[in-house]
């Protein structure tokens, strides 16, 4: 990848924030990643192209795109990459950067992630009922699938937890998470 002074900052940031991220410099632009990606067809830019854009310093275009948010964390690209680039982890890095810079266009995926971790930070456990309720009510519920019959069946099949369970050590967990949040990524 061609690195010039003007575009190195964004590339360096992405690499620094990703364990093993320096492999990004060795990207061959072969396209194995995009070809392996189950949601590739729905992405604005394939992973291959995103890596070229990162190299070209196109920070805003990269962080605005839906590409990282359509990554389903299946790791097909990661195991198939001939240069062993930790692609899934780079997508996590891009998501985190997009949230911090508030650059994403479509709010659905970032809001879902943030609602999810909101419950984790409050209770120590995830809580599907709360998550689904909060998420589907605030994100144009009619556009989505009909949640009510789904929830009712889950309920009658005893597959929904009605109340969130709070872990005993929630204070301890919060102290740990707060400490971690003061640290820089790596």
């Amino acid at each position: 990848m061609n690195v010039t002074k003007s575009n190195h900052t964004f590339l360096m940031q992405v690499m620094d924030a990703t364990l093993g991220g320096e492999a990004l410099l060795t990207c061959l632009q072969c396209g194995s990643c995009g070809g392996s990606c189950p949601s590739g067809p729905d992405m604005e830019h394939t992973p291959r192209r995103i890596f070229a854009m990162i190299g070209a310093g196109m920070r805003d275009e990269v962080l605005k795109s839906n590409t990282p948010w359509y990554c389903v964390s299946c790791y097909y690209c990661t195991v198939r990459c001939p240069k062993e680039i930790p692609i899934t982890d780079i997508m996590y890095t891009l998501k985190q950067m997009a949230i911090e810079a508030k650059l994403y266009d479509d709010r659905d995926a970032p809001d879902f992630s943030q609602s999810f971790i909101g419950f984790v930070e409050n209770y120590g456990r995830s809580y599907e009922v709360g998550l689904a309720t909060r998420f589907h009510l605030t994100h144009s519920p009619l556009k989505k699938f009909d949640y009510a019959p789904f929830a009712l069946t889950m309920l009658t099949k005893d597959r929904l937890q009605l109340r969130p369970e709070r872990i005993k050590g929630i204070g301890q967990l919060r102290a740990i998470l707060n400490k971690a949040k003061t640290m820089e990524d790596m």
């Binding site: 890095t93 949230i99 992630s113 943030q114 971790i117 984790v120 456990r125 971690a180 790596m186």
Partner: peptide, 24 residues
């Protein structure tokens, strides 16, 4: 007293916190 593993969500929001969550 295990806590949530963060699923595929926590790593997208804060990596260090995600590792610490699992670390506990």
């Amino acid at each position: 007293d295990w806590n949530c593993c963060g699923a595929t969500e926590y790593f997208a929001v804060n990596k260090m916190a995600a590792y610490a969550l699992v670390g506990r």
